[in-house]
Structure formats: structure tokens, C-alpha cells
């Protein structure tokens, strides 16, 4: 069992992290054309609304919820020290989980039943959708069956995840959890591993930089002023877009 546990909680996470990091860099450099999601809204917009919107807002809330639990477990525990506040957090998170779950089911139904969408569907899309569906289902199951996850996650799991990142893996906590929780963890790393090779890459290029750039964009091939200045010295800098 310990070999299996070692694989699940040490081997898989490190493999996933390495593949994710190297894969992301490699794909960004070599397959930049594919580094986005293939939007299908143009082919079908109405039912996409009932899938994409609840799914994305749900998954974004859950992602940041997990991230906060990992980064500042102390603060989460302090917040949860008042039972009412803990119940509020749990109920909200559960609601967003349901939203993501229902949204994803709608997306899968849309993908399977709409002929146009089916023609722009790859095997990887289906794999990713099913993995995400199982992952969210497991998460909902955990939230329902093993109550007050926001507290025990911060207390038990955060140290494990932190130990992974500090290259000093301590799996004792993770190894003794219920299999549902273990599956949730392992599947999360599998999804992480698939990110660079699937449509999920789009979450890495969410265009936040748009907020800071000026609206208009003009690109000059070459500093014409420099080229025309015969008194100037030979420039050693390349054109910006070269």
C-alpha cells in the first residue's frame, strides 16, 4: 500500500508538476497557434450560456477557494473559528460547486447533442470534460459527506501540498484519508498534467494584461526614424518584433 501511496502522493504530483511546467513552456514555444480554447460560441450561442457561465464562475470561485486554503490556512482556520462564518463559507462553496457541476453537465450535453459542436470536438476535449466532471462530483461528495472541509483541508491537506512544493514530501496525512478524498487529490494532479496539452491552456493566458494596455496598438516594423538618420550609429538592437 505504501508503494501505491508513494506513487499517488509523491510520484504523480511531481510528474504532473514537471510535465505541466515543461509542457507549458514547450507548447507555448512550439505550438503557439494552439495555445487557446477553441470557442464554439460562434456555432451555437444560446445553450452555451447555460453551460459556460455557471461552470466558469463556479470553477473560478472554487479554484481561488482552494488556493486560499493552501496559501493562508491559518487565516481560514481563524475565520472558521466562528461556526456561523464557517457555515456561510461551506454553503457558498457548495453552491458554486453545484453551479460548476450543472454548467459542465450542460456543456457536455451540448457538445454531444449539437452536430455542429460535435464536429469541433476532439478526444482531448471529451477526456478533459469527463475528468473535470468526476473531479467536481468528488468534490461535492466530499463537501457533503466529510463536513467542514474548509477547516480540515486547511489543517490537514495544506501542510501536505506545501510539503510537496518545498520538496520535502510528507504524505502521512494524505495517506490516511478516505479514498474519495484521495481520488480527488490524485485526479487534480492528473488534470494539472493535462493542462498544457488540452484546451485548458486558456486559463494560463487569461488576458488580464488587457486592463493595463492602451486601447489602440500600432506596430512599426522598424524604427524608420533610425533608418533614415544617416548620422546615427549602426544600431545593435533588433526590431522589437523580430
Amino acid at each position: 500500500m505504501s508503494l501505491f501511496n508513494n506513487f499517488l502522493f509523491i510520484g504523480l504530483p511531481y510528474a504532473a508538476l514537471v510535465v505541466f511546467l515543461i509542457g507549458t513552456i514547450y507548447m507555448y514555444r512550439s505550438a503557439k497557434f494552439k495555445f487557446s480554447s477553441l470557442s464554439s460560441e460562434f456555432l451555437e450561442a444560446k445553450s452555451l450560456f447555460w453551460g459556460s457561465v455557471p461552470f466558469h464562475w463556479g470553477i473560478i470561485f472554487l479554484f481561488f477557494g482552494h488556493l486560499i486554503g493552501l496559501l493562508i490556512p491559518g487565516a481560514v482556520l481563524a475565520w472558521n473559528s466562528v461556526p456561523l462564518r464557517m457555515v456561510v463559507i461551506e454553503v457558498t462553496a457548495f453552491a458554486f460547486g453545484i453551479s460548476a457541476f450543472i454548467g459542465l453537465i450542460n456543456l457536455i450535453i451540448r457538445r454531444k447533442t449539437n452536430r455542429r459542436i460535435w464536429t469541433v470536438t476532439s478526444k482531448m476535449d471529451l477526456l478533459v470534460e469527463i475528468l473535470l466532471l468526476v473531479e467536481i462530483f468528488l468534490g461535492l461528495w466530499i463537501a457533503y459527506e466529510f463536513r467542514w472541509g474548509s477547516s480540515w483541508f486547511a489543517a490537514v491537506l495544506s501542510p501536505y501540498i506545501v510539503s510537496i512544493f518545498t520538496l520535502n514530501p510528507d504524505i502521512s496525512a494524505a495517506a490516511n484519508l478516505h479514498w474519495v478524498i484521495q481520488a480527488h487529490i490524485a485526479l487534480a494532479f492528473v488534470i494539472l498534467l493535462l493542462i498544457p496539452f488540452s484546451r485548458l491552456v486558456h486559463l494560463l493566458v487569461y488576458p488580464l494584461h488587457y486592463l493595463w494596455r492602451p486601447y489602440q496598438r500600432v506596430i512599426w516594423y522598424w524604427g524608420r526614424k533610425k533608418v533614415r538618420d544617416s548620422n546615427g550609429t549602426w544600431s545593435v538592437s533588433k526590431a522589437k518584433n523580430n
Partner: peptide, 21 residues
């Protein structure tokens, strides 16, 4: 930021490698 105007002649183009749908 995939779409830009060329400074030299004002042609507006979309960089297909930067466009993310």
C-alpha cells in the same frame, strides 16, 4: 492584443499566433 495597426501603412492585421479566440 493580437490585432494591430501597421505603423507604416495603416493596414490592420490579426496575429494568428496571439489570437486566443
Amino acid at each position: 492584443g493580437a490585432i494591430y495597426k501597421r505603423g507604416e501603412d495603416g493596414v490592420v492585421l490579426i496575429n494568428q499566433k496571439v489570437c486566443r479566440a
